[in-house]
Design a protein around this nucleic acid. Structure first.
Lengths: 233, 233
DNA sequence: CCTACCGATCGGTAGG
DNA sequence: CCTACCGATCGGTAGG
């Protein structure tokens, strides 16, 4: 997603030409849009080529197969999400702050990358092995990290949850939902969105600071981690 | 979903034979399983026929088109969800109780109908007009009802929410997620699941009764509405 | 980067 | 309920 537009100029890169509209990342970008809109099976190589002003067979100068495009999108997305998550929970030892920041990062990522996230959640069954299994393992790791944060908070007496597993599922899921309706330029900024959802996460485990105030409440002290970039195409 | 297995014997029903494995509802049932597993575009009429021990062309004695199967599933599912919701919020005038019961019903429906719900959320873009628009309108109505419950709770001073819209989205979404992981026969009953999620909904708007206790807490007073049937195939 | 083309599969129809 | 078959489209290759 955030890869530079110019291709790696090293001579070992034999998959892409150096110029023109058909470079690998451009094909991925077109696939990202179309897979998200119509689904993997609902998108043909002809469609992707059309978005780039090409004929379908020309894509195979840059891409091994349609499956490779799905693989690239899913692996990259899950890596970005996991890395952002790991980085942000390392910024505090306080479990309340960890949960709040994890939710902010989670929601901001989903708001900024709706196409990737939609594909990631809708097309798992169309991903072939071994990547299919790898993605499932990464999702498990992500989910397990959330659960362990909540479990630790309960152990430390900071959280109240009848089931850390259910609490973590609820938090993850409500954040994923953001990718389905959030549009930049609306009444809410991405940062505000993150703040509200961070607050909701704390409420879910009864760790919320008293009341949060009305919509538009000041957001002093909110830290948007640097790892989460806010651009989108 | 809950239609009786014997077909309507009225002579006006010209779409289905009265006996045999290929009646309309059986085809829908097979489509339900396969659409949920592989997606609408990933499922062929041959696949559906195979599950019924038939050849693909035989299906057209019972079904107009593949699209009709998707239409039937999506309309029926959304109608059931909306009707359950309307019925359950009519059982109490207290806004806290309405929200709790709405969440219980929402979650129980999603736990009991994972296939329908998965299709309903994944295949909207494969639904043709005018049904596509009708489904979107029903979803809007459902979502709006949740938001108005929260708005009223805030007005009455029972709820605290910086954004009823965001709160309702979060609640809806965390309930939908249940359909992705809940399996009957696990450590949790459907009724317990509904109770926990009802509790989480109240927490999200700071209306939770103090603390809820540990996992396995007593569930005295939980009302599972009769409209929500608990069978699944 | 293109045209021409491959075998496979699709939803659906004809006709019995 | 079947076999035989239709035109369309698919992902991908050959060859330049």
């Amino acid at each position: 997603m955030s890869a530079p537009l110019q291709e790696d100029p090293s001579p070992g890169n034999e998959r892409s030409t150096r110029t023109g509209p058909g470079r690998f990342q451009d094909v991925v970008e077109a696939a990202l849009t179309l897979f998200a809109e119509r689904g993997y099976l609902g998108t043909s190589m002809k469609d992707i080529a059309g978005l780039l002003g090409l004929r379908a067979p020309s894509l195979y100068n840059h891409v091994d197969s349609k499956q490779e495009l799905l693989r690239e999108i899913m692996v990259r997305t899950m890596n970005e999400l996991l890395n952002s998550h790991r980085a942000v929970i390392a910024t505090s030892a306080d479990v309340v702050e960890q949960l709040r920041r994890a939710m902010e990062t989670h929601v901001i990522y989903h708001a900024n990358n709706p196409r990737d996230v939609r594909i990631g959640n809708a097309e798992i069954q169309n991903l072939e092995e071994p990547v299919h299994g790898e993605i499932l393992r990464m999702r498990d790791e992500y989910s397990a990290s959330w659960q362990s944060i909540i479990e630790r908070g309960v152990r430390e007496g900071r959280f109240d949850s009848p089931s850390p597993r259910l609490s973590s599922f609820a938090m993850l899921e409500m954040g994923i939902g953001v990718s389905m309706w959030f549009r930049p330029g609306g009444p809410l900024t991405v940062a505000q969105l993150g703040y509200y959802y961070g607050d909701m996460a704390l409420r879910l485990v009864n760790a919320a600071p008293a009341a949060v105030g009305r919509a538009g409440a000041a957001m002093a002290g909110v830290v948007i981690p640097a790892q989460v970039d806010v651009h989108r195409s």
